[in-house]
């Protein structure tokens, strides 16, 4: 069993003529809180979209080590057919299977959940329903049981509601359980999105700018919550964040991205004193850094 939960090897992503990510490689250690930082446009969200399966990487290998087995993110998104498939029927069958039934959702099913920079909630559904939808893969989906409202179905539904309330308690949202998600405040929506991601029982969670738009008090509370994700829920956390105070406080490990390349990796202290990082943030000429 690897001690890393996620390994990224030479990830590149090209949009038309633009090389958004260039040979990005890093690992995320199991049980850690890892931050991905960098100036605007550095490619942080692109990295997130690649590892959570929203983009298919142009090249590179992305592997998750969750649920006691490695999962190739490239594979579950569906790969183009290769010539040697003809001789390897098993490989061909798996390719066809993932072409048909693969996709972004497989990454979540493998145990990596995420939140978004622009909050993505089901605004016209209630908070509880938002959390129930996240349990789609675990509830009783039998058509028969549902139509005839059997005992097993009722129990499964109630269990999903109870699970939702447990999480609302943790995220201090119980009072809003039966409100529409869209009518809550921004900070509440951020918390709900994290709670909803946890509902899918992930082993790792990727938070894209969780503190964006929060006031200092809310950011403080968020930092505690992120630490709680590790202690209470035993999750590995990876986050993109611009609030350096918070990043330095919560993370064990930091990866710095600039112009689609990893320019530094290390503990917060190492990053804080890295000249390349300072240059990237303060905008020093490239040749000066080299010197």
């Amino acid at each position: 069993m690897s001690k890393n939960i996620l390994t990224i090897d030479k990830l590149s992503m090209r949009f038309g003529g633009i090389l958004a990510l260039d040979n990005v490689s890093f690992e995320v250690e199991k049980g850690s809180i890892t931050a991905l930082i960098g100036p605007n446009g550095a490619g942080k969200t692109t990295v997130f979209n690649c590892i959570t399966g929203f983009y298919k990487a142009t090249s590179g290998a992305l592997t998750l080590h969750t649920r006691q087995e490695p999962t190739s993110i490239n594979k579950v998104l569906g790969q183009p057919f290769q010539l040697d498939d003809i001789f390897k029927p098993r490989q061909l069958a798996s390719r066809i299977f993932y072409k048909m039934f693969g996709g972004t959702h497989r990454v979540n099913m493998a145990g990596l959940a995420r939140t978004f920079q622009n909050i993505q909630l089901f605004n016209d559904l209630t908070v509880i329903e938002n959390l129930q939808i996240a349990q789609h893969n675990t509830v009783n989906k039998s058509l028969f049981a549902g139509v005839f409202n059997t005992k097993a179905f009722k129990e499964s539904e109630q269990a999903s509601i109870d699970r939702a309330y447990e999480l609302l308690e943790v995220f201090n949202l119980t009072a809003d359980a039966n409100r529409l998600a869209g009518e809550m405040s921004y900070g509440q929506q951020r918390r709900l999105e994290i709670a909803r991601a946890i509902c899918t029982n992930p082993e790792m969670i990727a938070l894209d700018e969780p503190a964006a738009g929060l006031n200092p008090n809310e950011t403080e509370a968020l930092a505690k919550m992120i630490q709680m994700l590790r202690t209470e829920f035993k999750m590995t956390v990876m986050l993109i964040e611009h609030d350096m105070g918070m990043v330095m406080k919560v993370s064990d490990f930091i990866i710095v991205l600039d112009h689609g390349e990893v320019i530094a990796k290390g503990t917060p202290d190492e990053i804080l004193n890295n000249p390349k990082v300072i240059a990237a943030y303060l905008g020093v000429d490239d040749d000066e850094v080299a010197a």
Partner: peptide
Amino acid sequence: GKPAVEKV
């Protein structure tokens, strides 16, 4: 046409 890239 150009393949569309979804904005997330």
